[in-house]
Design a protein around this nucleic acid. Structure first.
Lengths: 232, 232
DNA sequence: AAGAAATGTTAAATCATGTTAAAGTATTTA
DNA sequence: TAAATACTTTAACATGATTTAACATTTCTT
């Protein structure tokens, strides 16, 4: 099976960050086109074919939302990842992002961005015809079906609750990488208040209990940042 | 067989959302006409031929209900999809929407809107002659005829009651996606009061019982949100 | 090392759903 | 039209999921 190159539009006014990201993504096998502001990015979009847009919200000349809207007018499908300052209100972001979009809060690791990109491309490139995506993860000797909310090992199987399953799914999507606490909270609990955070801690404990049967599987805490699902 | 384009009237005063929707729907092969308020939309309706109207309730100049009523005076058949704020009272919505109409609560995903559009067009486009559209769903090894209210597996067949059938139909229309509790309640029971909610729970139990013969079929509860009909 | 902050863990409290049966409504049949 | 039947809602109780509370432990900061 042949793989065509994936073209990524990157709209970022910070020159350092921009070129860093571009080189990193290119090293990962993507074709990245970097534009320093919305106007240039929009021109670039019109003259190339892209599979994904990574757009900084705060940019001179034309802000990221406006850019995204104009791009959407031309292409109703293409997914966006927005780069947002951590001060930005969640409801603003949520209010805008419809469909297959995602956002990532600065500062972020390039690894994290890469992971989001892969997740989005997996969703959009393959199944244009859209039944819900099959989501079965291998975690050590465990097998986890996120749609059926079923965690299996050997012949034993455990039905997970909704929250357990959503959290484990996020961990799996970030397997061997860090899952940001606040990102998880916003994804699953809608907001990252104190009580929701404590609730998530309880669920981490539960998942650890369920995952005990394979000692090589671990949920590691990265103090002050998040969790990491470790497998061999 | 030739397919004429489907014309959609879209009345939405939020310019961002409006143009986003328009481009999305056009990308999906529809012809979308966007109007920024009820008066413009009504003029537009008189000078074009439409198969479906998507109408925001809250609009300047002429609200969505008034617009819909005036359109209904001209065309007694055309289906509406109303876009409603989530603060809107159920009985208000339901009091207005009759028959083949539908509504969707903001914020919504474009994918969800697309599904609703397809469902409505499936119901209305074919059967101009009043013949009931065939609606037969495959659910695992089961076959469900929503019009005849008949659920069959192997050589066994079970006649469903009206409510059972309506609920199963909604689940089927959302197969492998989540069916929102309140949406189901409003669609079938007219409003989502406590007792209706409990009544629906009873029907979920009944459907689960009927669907036991194929273990790969499951009605999964998404805690606090809704149900998901899982099939292979 | 000491205090503060974050995380781990368990149990209790709260809220949502599952289930069954009885009570109430509507519909059909004799 | 009255009795029988089918359907739907209400009630009551059972189970399950999620959040909150309380206390223990770890990690960070200074």
């Amino acid at each position: 099976m042949e793989t065509e190159p994936v073209n990524i539009l990157l709209a970022e006014d910070d020159e350092n960050l921009g070129s860093l990201l571009k080189e990193y993504l290119n090293a990962k096998g993507y074709h990245t086109y970097l534009y320093p502001h919305g106007v240039a990015a929009f021109d670039g979009f019109k003259s190339n074919s892209f599979e994904l847009c990574i757009i900084d919200i705060m940019m001179p000349k034309m802000d990221g939302f406006t850019l995204a809207r104009k791009i959407r007018e031309i292409n109703g499908e293409i997914p966006f990842i927005f780069l947002t300052a951590k001060t930005m209100k969640e409801d603003v972001i949520k209010g805008f992002s419809i469909g297959a979009d995602d956002y990532i809060t600065k500062p972020f690791s390039m690894e994290e961005l890469l992971y989001r990109i892969q997740a989005i491309l997996r969703r959009t490139l393959n199944n244009g015809s859209g039944e819900s995506t099959e989501a079965i993860y291998q975690v050590g000797r465990y097998s986890f079906d996120a749609n059926k909310q079923l965690l299996e090992i050997d012949s034993y199987s455990k039905k997970l609750t909704t929250k357990e399953s959503e959290l484990l799914r996020l961990l799996c999507e970030h397997k061997n990488r860090m899952l940001d606490r606040n990102y998880a909270l916003r994804s699953i609990w809608e907001d990252d208040s104190y009580f929701n955070a404590r609730s998530m801690d309880v669920y981490i404990t539960k998942l650890r209990k369920y995952l005990k049967k394979d000692p090589s599987v671990q949920i590691l805490n990265i103090h002050g940042k998040g969790y990491k699902l470790i497998t061999e």
